[in-house]
């Protein structure tokens, strides 16, 4: 019986995948072409002599591997810092009652709504004054600051959803605020934490404007800066950009698939404890 009900479900999943993958298929097709085939007519999904040579060229000849490394470093450090500072704040904003609470929540909500692009010029000035231009530390601090409001707001709403009874019970048992946080709240946060982590990782991974503006040395560039470096005065080598962008895509997708397990891990944890 199960098999039969699965059919429409699989069809639906297939349609979803197609809707989101087909446009990218063309991007992939571009990445297997030569420069001359980029413009060929009629357009072919698989050109004659299609190959992965562009990928080899990008990996061997360009700085993309270093940029990948830098991106990974910045994204991981910034995500860690964001979560480290954001989780405790979100926790007390959700679980404690105090007068300034609503005011602080509002400030975070408001702050998270401001596009960092609006603030590009003053942020550059500030980072320059701190002598952190052209360092990963500066980029990590700015990135974390930008994503902290979002992180706090989202995590708070996940903390809000946890059953109050659990916390009451722990408090009656005489647990300190920190132990309740560590033993009760954190383990139940699985799905929320995983989604916030993936949001932050992906945001840091693909951020372009700040990275371009705050970094000067190519040795520190992140992957989006590297991708757009293919854009030269007149010609843009789209077949190479396409290959490089797929290479840049893979780590985030892998991170997503890995973090995916914690969505489910959180759920089971919730089920056994609740």
């Amino acid at each position: 019986m199960k098999k039969r009900t699965d059919r429409p479900m699989q069809l639906a999943l297939l349609l979803v995948a197609a809707a989101f993958l087909l446009p990218q298929l063309w991007l992939f097709s571009l990445s297997t072409k030569t420069k001359a085939q980029v413009y060929e007519y009629p357009p072919k999904l698989i050109s004659d002599s299609a190959s992965l040579r562009n990928y080899a060229a990008v990996i061997e000849k360009t700085q993309i591997p270093f940029y990948l490394w830098n991106s990974a470093r910045v994204a991981v450090l910034a995500t860690a810092l964001t979560l480290l500072l954001g989780i405790p704040a979100a926790y007390v904003l959700s679980r404690e009652r105090f007068k300034r609470r609503d005011g602080i929540v509002f400030l975070f909500l408001a702050a998270q709504m401001v596009s960092p692009l609006i603030l590009l010029v003053p942020i550059y000035g500030l980072v320059a004054k701190l002598h952190l231009l052209d360092t990963h530390a500066g980029l990590v601090l700015v990135y974390s600051a930008i994503q902290i409001p979002f992180t706090v707001v989202v995590l708070k709403s996940f903390f809000d959803g946890l059953p109050t009874s659990l916390f009451e019970a722990a408090r009656l048992d005489g647990c300190s605020r920190f132990s309740i946080f560590r033993l009760v709240a954190l383990p139940l946060l699985g799905p929320g934490l995983a989604s916030v982590a993936i949001f932050n990782l992906a945001a840091y991974w693909s951020e372009f404007c700040l990275a371009l503006v705050l970094l000067d040395s190519q040795a520190r560039f992140t992957i989006p800066v590297g991708l757009f470096s293919f854009q030269s005065g007149y010609e843009t080598e789209w077949h190479l950009v396409a290959a490089a962008s797929f290479i840049g895509l893979l780590p985030v997708l892998l991170a997503f698939i890995m973090l995916q397990r914690f969505f489910v891990a959180g759920l089971t944890a919730g089920a056994t404890k609740g």
Binding site: P23, Q24, A202, S245, L249, F256
Partner: peptide, 13 residues
């Protein structure tokens, strides 16, 4: 697979 394909569209600059 379906989820990853939706997400893949979102992580392209």
């Amino acid at each position: 697979f379906a989820r990853a394909s939706v997400v893949s569209a979102w992580v392209i600059p």
